[in-house]
Design a protein around this nucleic acid. Structure first.
Lengths: 337, 337
DNA sequence: ATGAAAGCGCTAACAC
DNA sequence: GTGTTAGCGCTTTCAT
């Protein structure tokens, strides 16, 4: 019967091939000095023995892991998935692998995660957001690797950042709505204090409304982030009961905006004739639902790509690498008039 | 100014604390024999020095990484995200970390990914689907770790599996529609040959239709998987042009089903009065859009949880651990009459 | 409860 | 182009 045997090592291949372990090691690096015949013989022996390269040993000896640690709030979010996709795309050119963790929109969880990730000795760490617990911040500051914060413009950047002002994008949306003659405008978002980017968007709403001299009381807190479609719908129901004369509502994301839209449909309210809806994130649903949703494209994939190339520049020792300010774009569609 | 210094090691802590490196090592394990005073002193020194545990060294010496490798087709998919969430939830009780990779619905990419993941010496590997390239299969068979295939019932399981028959679920949907007196039924899915689970669902459609003696020509291939909402809408447009008398359409996922629904709305077709729509996956959108979507719940999170506990049983050396057959559930909603 | 010695499997550094 | 030596930072093992 089958029995447990120790997997073969480079030493085994060396023995079989009659070369030194060092030569075997060279055969597995593409750019190393080694004759074609020797390499072919070694690779063949490796295949025959069922050899699998041991990255744990390589990592320790070379003090390189080819890992880039990444934290995102949730794996099930098209925006963050796109950012990770763009990053992964860029890094795979260097055979670097992403070590992904998710924080569930919780700074305590982020702290734990960062600590765990740093133990794996990544070459760099990319975190979502610019606010962290004091301890997480210290861990990042002390880490002997590049740190990039994304999806935000940190008040005090730890290393570099690739992001935009979450307050700013909602200010733009408010400005647009005011220009279109709306004045009774509401905001649907998550509970304050957990999802900092969502809180920042809410803050941007408040600032812009005050600046226009408009009433800022139409605020619905829909629960802990992320706000689902269902929660968006429930929030819309509450909004319509508390403030039935609302003319437009800005939702913290397209998902909650779509939920809000369905609530209007169930109540026989016409969008945008009876009430207008704006979202955030340019999720696919907003471009295809009926009516389509006015939203803000934060260029999620671009954030990932630019984070990747910034990272490669830093790791290559390039000087004068700067931060990247992303410019989100307002997309006006059918859900606002 | 700041200068690059080597990060502290356990030896440094040992020196500062006046104990041996071995004792320092013990201080970081929760269950080891060590006096409270010694441990506290060591942990304090570690904190002061800014010590970060080096998992690469630990991994090599102990031949344990606490990694579980996982491949999924896409990170941006609520079903697979739920499975990963359920798995992660279960594994975190053992402090195991998921090493995640995505295949982009491509078996060649899966092969590359599996090879890369195995080099990191995971304790187990979980793959999505039961079909693989010959080489990927060989890699998995030779891997000295448990292998679990999910989201499918493999023809020849490599190790264990946690899944369901993708053909079977669509057969059930067809049976339900036929019982409800539909006969001109169509199927919208991806191109054949890439996403094997989608292909299996299409196959289940064909089998069931033949069994009922119904016409199987209403097949729309919407492009390479995954089929987006937009592609679902485009496919619906083609379906309505080619087969205007279609009574019901089954879509390979709720996302394409929603796209199809919006196409009907744009054309002024009523769902389900003029045409009925069924989806797959019980995505949130299907439970909230107007009308809500008839679908099949594959219990994605459950697949992850059960994969996790199966894995822990195997790693604990439990005997008689079996495979897990998931029983997806038909959910009848407003989009079918 | 703590320590000493050895070594996990690879590769940096140097030699030829 | 290939070999030798040493050692990355931990933890296994055995001793006290």
């Amino acid at each position: 019967m089958s029995q447990i045997r120790k997997p073969p090592t480079m030493a085994d291949i060396a023995r079989v091939t009659g070369v030194s372990p060092m030569t075997v090691s060279r055969a597995f690096k593409t750019d190393s000095l080694i004759s074609k015949e020797t390499r072919d013989a070694i690779l063949k022996a490796a295949e025959d023995l069922g050899y699998v390269f041991d990255a744990t040993a390589s990592n320790l000896r070379s003090q390189k892991t080819d890992f880039v640690a990444v934290t995102i709030p949730s794996i099930n979010n098209a925006n963050f998935a796109d950012t990770v996709g763009g990053l992964s795309e860029t890094l795979s050119a260097r055979n670097m692998q992403i070590l992904l963790g998710y924080t569930n929109y919780d700074m305590q969880e982020e702290e734990r995660l960062i600590e765990q990730l740093l133990r794996r000795k990544p070459e760099a760490i990319v975190v979502t957001g610019g606010k962290h617990t004091a301890r997480a911040r210290k861990l990042l500051e002390n880490a002997p690797i590049p740190v990039i914060e994304t999806w935000d413009v940190p008040a005090e950047p730890i290393g570099h950042f690739v992001g935009f002002s979450n307050a700013g994008v909602v200010r733009e949306m408010v400005d647009h709505l005011v220009r279109s003659d709306y004045s009774r405008i509401a905001f649907i978002g998550g509970d304050v204090g957990r999802d900092t980017r969502g809180s920042d968007r809410r803050q941007g709403f408040l600032e812009a409304m005050r600046q226009h001299g408009l009433d800022t009381s139409r605020l619905i807190a829909a629960g802990p982030p992320p706000i689902s479609m269902r929660e968006g719908a429930n929030a819309m129901a509450r909004l319509l009961e508390q403030f039935p004369d609302t003319e437009a509502v800005i939702c913290v994301s397209d998902l909650s905006a779509f939920g809000a839209l369905t609530e209007c449909q169930r109540r026989g309210l016409r969008v945008p004739e009876d009430i207008s809806i704006g979202g955030f994130g340019d999720y696919e649903i907003g471009s295809i639902c009926v009516p389509t949703l006015t939203t803000i494209d934060a260029h999620a994939r671009d954030i990932g790509r630019k984070t990747g190339s910034l990272l490669l520049d830093i790791l290559d020792g390039k000087q004068n690498v700067g931060d990247v300010l992303i410019e989100p774009q307002l997309i006006v569609r059918e859900s606002t008039r």
